[in-house]
């Protein structure tokens, strides 16, 4: 029996009079691939922003391994092991691929300004050691051909992959994927599915994914939660959620 890693209870997030998330609860087990689906504006990305500390929900608790992380700053949550990719890419476009991955390793490094200025000793050793760790990520995601390319010049699909790589470089316990295959063609989507399965197989990373591509979600996810207008309307296996009348109504319209 797997253990619960993340437990979200009764989260409510309001912006003024607008309730973006209304009393949503769910839990994610260690090693699970959990998907959140829902129509546009349902509150999926807001949920991610609560999980990694960008927004602070007014009510509820988020327990990561038993520790309530509500109110923690994003950097602290990152150190506790939650990594994330963005819907519209959050890469540093003026840096090359290696530097972006090295930034993923930031928390695992120590050099400050003084030791960096001196370079020899700690900083140099650290750079070499961490460079090796980045290489492993590049190998896993087949990013080697782009090593020294400026990220802004890379095709969209590769940028998406690199962002996944940067999150992986953090060695997270939970990976939040915000629409990992949005805007990708069929082939790129299949590649991404393969990479996610490979990550699961090799690293057993817990993943929470927001995605609109239903076949992708239904094929990959262990469990799916559907939300609409900030409320949880269904949770369960992909099969259960797909046939849930509330979910069908949310997507296709009609009364419940």
């Amino acid at each position: 029996m797997s253990t619960t890693l993340l437990e979200v209870s009764d989260i409510t997030l309001r912006f003024g009079g607008v309730t973006a998330i209304n009393d949503v609860s769910f839990s994610v087990d260690e090693g699970e691939l959990f998907a959140i689906i829902g129509p546009n504006g349902a509150g999926k990305t807001s949920m991610f922003n609560c999980l990694n500390g960008v927004y602070r929900p007014q009510q509820g608790t988020i327990l990561l391994n038993g520790e309530n992380i509500i109110g923690y700053k994003p950097t602290r949550i990152a150190k506790l092991g939650i990594a994330r990719t963005f819907q519209n890419l959050g890469l540093f476009t003026n840096l090359n691929v290696v530097d972006n991955l090295m930034l993923g390793r930031h928390m695992h490094m120590k050099s400050g300004f003084l030791s960096a200025a001196v370079w020899f000793g700690r900083t140099r050793n650290e750079e070499i050691a961490q460079r090796e760790a980045c290489e492993e990520v590049m190998r896993l995601l087949e990013l080697e051909p782009y090593r020294n390319t400026l990220v802004g010049l890379l095709p969209y699909g590769v940028q998406k992959r690199l962002e996944l790589g940067r999150a992986l470089a953090m060695e997270p316990r939970i990976l939040l994927l915000d629409e990992p295959v949005a805007g990708m063609n069929h082939e790129e989507t299949e590649d991404m599915a393969r990479y996610l399965l490979e990550i699961r197989g090799q690293l057993n990373t817990t993943m929470i994914m927001v995605e609109h591509d239903m076949p992708f979600v239904m094929d990959l996810a262990d469990r799916v939660m559907a939300i609409d207008f900030g409320q949880r309307i269904a949770i369960g296996t992909p099969e259960q959620v797909r046939t849930d009348p509330a979910v069908v109504a949310a997507y296709l319209g009609g009364d419940q």
Binding site: G90, F92, G104
Partner: peptide
């Protein structure tokens, strides 16, 4: 380049 993304990677 992107301060929110920077926060989120620590």
């Amino acid at each position: 380049d992107r301060d929110i993304a920077a926060e989120i990677i620590g």
